[in-house]
Simulated scan of single mutants.
Amino acid sequence: MSGVFAVTTRTVPTGTVLAFAGELDSGTAPAAHGAMTKLSLNAGDQLVVDLAGLEFCDSSGITVLVSAHNLARGAGAGFALAAVSRQLGRTLDILGLTGLFATYPTADDASAAWSPAGSREDGVV
């Protein structure tokens, strides 16, 4: 089903924003993983995955999100999702993953809320 997919990254004072746009599925997940391997995360940073441009996400995409979370936590960084669609939020809830991800309406909101000293071990702020 792979359609148009784009990955962009930007550095913000709290860390990195990784934005996915288009369709995140089995055909585009390798590109998402490839972008993640190029990230430079430091302890105390926050990785925000911005989903504002995401139109579709299948199980391969969910795996990408979990991998991004694990990458951040492995580096001692925080993790948050931004602009989670209603449909994706429902899917994450059904899968029991809502407790894994801190979520915010926008990437800017996630960055504004980040406090490495005040974050909990599970990554939820």
Rank of each mutant, 00 (worst) to 15 (best):
A112I: 07
V4K: 08
T106N: 05
D93Q: 14
Q87L: 15
D45E: 07
F79L: 09
P105L: 04
D93S: 13
V66Q: 04
A68G: 12
T28A: 11
D108G: 09
T11D: 12
A102I: 03
D93Y: 04
H33Y: 15
A72S: 12
F101Y: 10
R86A: 14
D93M: 08
P30N: 09
P105C: 03
R86M: 12
L97P: 04
G118Y: 09
I62H: 11
G44N: 13
V48W: 00
S59A: 13
A77F: 08
D58A: 09
T8W: 04
H69E: 06
A52S: 14
A80I: 06
T16H: 04
V17L: 06
A35N: 05
D108K: 10
A75I: 03
A112Y: 13
E55G: 11
A83V: 05
Y104L: 02
S59F: 02
S85F: 01
L39E: 07
L65T: 04
G44E: 08
F5M: 08
R120N: 12
E121C: 07
G123W: 02
V17M: 05
V48E: 00
E55A: 15
D122I: 08
L39P: 15
A113E: 15
L41T: 00
S119V: 15
A75W: 03
L92K: 03
G78W: 00
S115T: 12
P13A: 10
G78L: 05
S119T: 15
D122W: 07
L92Q: 03
S111L: 08
R86S: 14
D58H: 09
T91S: 13
L92G: 05
S67Y: 00
G15S: 06
A19D: 01
G123C: 08
S119F: 07
D109I: 01
G76W: 14
G22L: 13
A32M: 08
G61E: 02
P13V: 11
E55L: 12
V49F: 08
L100K: 10
D50I: 00
S60E: 11
G76I: 11
Q46Y: 02
A21Q: 12
G118F: 10
A29L: 04
A112R: 15
F20D: 00
H33A: 10
A21D: 11
L47V: 03
L24P: 00
Q46F: 03
T28D: 04
A112S: 13
E55T: 09
A80N: 04
T11P: 03
L51N: 00
G76F: 13
V12Q: 08
V12H: 02
G15V: 03
G96E: 13
G78E: 01
L51G: 00
S85W: 00
A68C: 11
L51V: 02
V125H: 14
G44C: 09
L47K: 02
A32N: 07
G61I: 01
A80S: 14
P30E: 07
V124S: 15
V84D: 06
G61N: 04
N70M: 14
T106M: 03
D50E: 10
M36D: 04
T14I: 06
T37Q: 13
T16L: 11
T98D: 14
M1F: 10
A32T: 06
L51C: 01
V124D: 06
A83T: 02
P116K: 03
S2C: 07
A75S: 15
